[in-house]
Design a protein around this nucleic acid. Structure first.
Lengths: 332, 332
DNA sequence: CTGAAAGCGCTTACAG
DNA sequence: CTGAAAGCGCTTACAG
């Protein structure tokens, strides 16, 4: 047990306990060379015993930044994280619960954070006010709804992605094409569905409202909605699934219905997560450059931290279709 | 452009520029109440302009810790991260390249880190020496090779998992059971294969060396090795794939060979990543409690930071078989 | 190798 | 609201 000691230990108190001068303790703490081995060992022991932590630190040369996820439960998250860490920022992983904290912003400042990256999440007006006051820059990745004009954000070209996915199916000869969107409130989901509509209209195919349904972006949502769609009197021959995870749910529903992908049903995802390559058959999907989006958001945040002005408050990175084996012309 | 200024700004230099006293600037920086709004605004503007960052910070009340991944490229990583963040530590994501830095340990200390978590990676003897000198505690998760006696680590019961996977296949009636391990050097892979052997021996089945092969734990490895195995004169009726990702590779090789899973070939994975539920058919696999491992490692690190003694230097968390739809009795 | 002394950046009563 | 003054925790030449 450490000897009785009021308050946290200081260099002075350790020096007194060790019977050496304060500068000597400072040298041990900082790993300077000019200390006798025995002295160093003795002082170090006292430091450990008292659990010494310096009360002042050198200013962080590294740019410590929080990245806030709604939940750390999707393979999504790693992709974005990877991008962010490649932008030269030091990234602290944080989850939603933290922002709901009354003094989230104050906690950021106290923790030495230089900014924050918020992923697929809403910033309340209160958050924005506090952030403004603290001068902490924030960038939002893939915002759920349209962020205020003055909140910098990074997204993907969702509309173009929905268009490309659907045109691919049209070109293969499909006419009965369904779409399973994400939650209706999500901006990105709406853009993808609008892209789907645009492709059908361009091809002169009427949009059948029965073939436009909403899931959750998760596996179960795709599974449930595909079951309903496949039970229709005139079922679709192709489904644009809105997300990769949802596409896997659609494929499972097809398998259970005794349908083969892509012979009986074509499936297109959205995201191009690493595992899109790993399904059987490998998934045709719209590549959303998640790592690049993370990197871009990191770079924007970095600029803001350094006091540079952003070229644009809103950046949308290009999506593109990756054709694999889950799509084929319809039977007959 | 900020006026010419040598060195980083200090409270004093800002005070001079703003024409107020140093204490007033201090109050603005710390958000104290007793400053006139106009004064505050004026000072704040100067602080922004000069990009002021305090040179001393309050000691972090939060326990900032680095978690080091070999590469942030596997769905694995999120699971572990999730566990760690739930252990009450503030987690900075870092990747291997950082540890190879000559003064990695010094960078940790300078960055205010209180410890580190190293995932599936080796600590060199030099690292260990430096860590020891700096008194920075480290915990290793799923070490590649046996860590030194004095390096705390967390793993899973890999041998028991290999045993359970193989016994499941034996019970279904399989006799020709192959295993695709990970890289030979990996401790966890060797334990899983030894569990496989033990199960066969218990069932009185001779181990056929042709059915024991090594992959990479990645998709391609499973695919390649399964192709070779299925081309054997007397091919296996079941494959224990060593990892989930590898299992997906095996399933794809089966599909391309015109084999149906599980009717023609049973496949068992290892990990139980979220996506094991999403394959078609859903994957039977050995659940490795990655999030729990992360949480446990975080807790151990927390104990070490607080100067508590660990109950045990090595913790192995239980694995268990999750039976889904990729396994069935062999044909005939 | 050690430590007295000067000094740095900041905070905190407290007098006005 | 403002700031002179005291003080805190630490670092850094530098003399011995």
């Amino acid at each position: 047990m450490p000897p009785h000691q009021l308050g946290r230990p200081t260099l002075a108190s350790i020096a007194a306990a060790a019977g050496v001068s304060l500068p000597t303790v400072s040298k041990v703490v900082n790993g300077k060379a000019d200390v006798a081995p025995t002295t160093r060992a003795h002082v170090q022991q006292l430091l450990d015993q008292h659990n010494y932590v310096p009360v002042t630190r050198r200013p962080a040369e590294d740019l410590l930044v929080d990245v806030v996820f709604t939940a750390l439960d999707s393979p999504w998250a790693v992709e974005i994280l990877r991008g962010v860490t490649e932008s030269g920022l030091e990234v602290v992983v944080s989850s939603q619960s933290r922002t709901s904290d009354v003094d989230w912003v104050q906690a950021l400042v106290a923790g030495g954070r230089r900014g924050a990256l918020v992923v697929t999440s809403r910033l309340t007006a209160a958050d924005q006010r506090r952030l403004g006051r603290s001068r902490l820059p924030v960038v939002v990745i893939d915002p759920v709804d349209m962020p205020g004009q003055d909140v910098p954000s990074v997204g993907a070209t969702n509309w173009a992605g929905g268009l490309a996915a659907t045109e691919h199916l049209v070109e293969l000869g499909h006419r009965r094409i369904a779409v399973v969107g994400g939650p209706q409130a999500y901006l990105c989901s709406r853009a993808r569905i609008d892209g789907y509509r645009a492709a059908l209209e361009r091809a002169g195919i009427a949009v059948d409202p029965a073939l436009v349904v909403h899931g959750t972006f998760r596996h179960q949502g795709g599974y449930d909605q595909a079951q309903s769609l496949l039970a229709l009197p005139d079922p679709p021959t192709a489904i644009f699934a809105g997300s990769d995870e949802q596409a896997f749910g659609v494929m499972e529903a097809a398998r259970q219905a005794g349908l083969s992908v892509p012979d009986d049903l074509s499936v297109v995802g959205f995201d191009d997560l690493p595992m899109a390559r790993w399904s059987s058959p490998p998934l045709t999907t719209v590549c959303q450059p998640l790592a690049d989006m993370g990197r871009m958001a990191g770079r924007m945040l970095h600029d803001l931290i350094d006091g540079r002005v952003l070229g644009s408050q809103r950046m949308e990175l290009a999506t593109h279709l990756v054709t694999r084996a889950s799509t084929a012309p319809p039977r007959r």
